[in-house]
Design a binder for these strands. Structure first.
Length: 446
DNA sequence: ATAGGGTTAG
């Protein structure tokens, strides 16, 4: 149910009748003030005959917009209320509060957990705590994990995701952990676990047998196919270099949705099969499936790499006009790249000047590289200034060379020297950082 | 019937 946000509390009170109605409204609330208002109305409206967990449910729903507002004072105020009305005894309220705190202040979350009575501390609470530790410190997360007596599928998946996302555990070790879970501990993996493992394998770009063994698990254990799992399998096979297996999985998906098509189209483009990617995209549209933003980034980047300027222009127009999708920075980056690569520098610059979001480093770099290649200093001028005003990280330090080359092309020798100086300062900072890091490591003596 | 884990992109 959608609720007019401008209603005053009094009007709301007359507009909403049952507690069920208020709960539904509260669930959909996005701004903290309306959530608090709805929550107070819920408390007024609640009759003694209503089950007590109703307030608890309300508190859980109110906590979401509250933590999204990321205001610690607001959250601790609500916390005080929960304490006073004795609602923290409900595990679902406690776990929600813990989750909210873990996003704002891990230290408070930790403290809250330590103070919790054992009766409140169920698996939900424990797993929220684990998740919180995972996002701050891997070692203490693992210690905590080892101390959980009856680890369930969520505990294992959380730990697994932590290992993969931090890149602290190689894929081989990650899979050993997966085996420890499913084989040694006999905890069945569900589709979230499998998506986690597949994403981990895919991002590590590791060997194909890993992906196969997970695929094997899916088939053997008859894990219910979800669109996420299917798409992850396609994505993983494509990323580890087996487009043929990806296609086979894609062909066998019973009810294909946009996610499967996206994964397959991205896979095709990844393997430089641009024409096939575009054909697949057209086939999907022809079948009446509505494309999403992600597919368009894949298709547009395929156009850029294949040098299909007009095709790219048409697809961009299609995205905006026919499908009503708002172009993101990725789409603009693709368009700039399409024009820039083809040497149509004016068109590329035009995209930058008319786009509705602030151009980022990727976009400027794409234009500047083309300016150098096609020898056009005039179009580069604004970009150079913008880039120099941005934070340039070590991996982008090649930009200084690019800019210095562009200045040389424009015969702006004073600026060439200035950029060289900037580059030296940057390198100096970098080296000093490295030296300090090196001092910290203990030398091993054999 | 309320709460916890994953989500694709040059």
């Amino acid at each position: 149910m959608s609720l007019p946000q401008h209603l005053a509390a009094g009007e709301l009170l007359t507009a909403l009748h049952g507690t069920g109605e208020i709960l539904t409204a509260l669930r959909g609330a996005t701004c903290p003030s309306s959530a608090i208002r709805l929550y107070s109305i819920l408390r007024i409206r609640l009759r003694p005959s209503d089950p007590s967990y109703c307030v608890g449910r309300g508190a859980v729903f109110a906590l979401k917009p509250l933590s999204a507002a990321s205001s610690l004072p607001l959250l601790s105020h609500f916390h005080a209320h929960l304490l006073k009305s004795n609602l923290l005894a409900y595990p679902h309220v406690a776990s929600s509060l813990l989750r909210s705190y873990s996003l704002l202040s891990p230290a408070i979350a930790h403290h809250l957990f330590d103070q919790m009575p054992p009766a409140t501390c169920n698996m939900f609470v424990v797993n929220v705590m684990l998740r919180s530790l995972c996002s701050s410190d891997l070692t203490s997360a693992r210690l905590f994990f080892d101390g959980i007596p009856d680890k369930d599928v969520v505990s294992w998946s959380t730990m697994l995701a932590c290992y993969f996302s931090k890149g602290r555990l190689g894929v081989a070790d990650g899979l050993a952990f997966f085996r420890e879970m499913t084989f040694t501990s006999q905890v069945a993996a569900d589709y979230v676990t499998l998506v986690t493992v597949l994403t981990g394998c895919a991002s590590a770009g590791l060997l194909q047998p890993f992906c196969r063994s997970i695929h094997g698990y899916v088939v053997r254990r008859r894990v219910p196919a979800s669109s996420h799992l299917g798409a992850s399998l396609i994505d993983c096979y494509a990323k580890v270099g087996h487009l043929d297996y990806a296609s086979r999985v894609f062909a066998r998906v019973a009810s294909r949705n946009v996610m499967h098509w996206t994964a397959m189209i991205c896979g095709m483009a990844m393997h430089l099969h641009y024409d096939e990617a575009i054909q697949l995209f057209e086939k999907m549209c022809w079948r009446g499936l509505g494309p999403n933003e992600m597919i368009f980034t894949a298709v547009l980047s395929a156009c850029g790499r294949a040098g299909l300027v007009e095709q790219g222009r048409v697809f961009f127009q299609l995205m905006v006009e026919k499908y009503g999708l708002e172009p993101s920075i990725h789409h603009y980056a693709c368009m700039v790249d399409i024009f820039a690569k083809a040497g149509q520098l004016e068109d590329a610059y035009d995209v930058i000047k008319t786009m509705k979001v602030e151009p980022n480093l990727v976009i400027w770099t794409s234009l500047l590289a083309a300016c150098k290649r096609f020898k056009n200093f005039d179009i580069a001028v604004e970009g150079i200034e913008k880039v120099l005003a941005m934070e340039i990280s070590d991996e982008n330090s090649g930009l200084y060379t690019l800019i210095s080359d562009l200045y040389a092309m424009g015969e702006r020798w004073g600026d060439v020297i200035k950029v060289r100086r900037l580059m030296e300062e940057h390198n100096l900072r970098k080296n000093r950082g490295l030296r300090r890091a090196r001092d910290l490591t203990v030398p091993t003596i054999s």
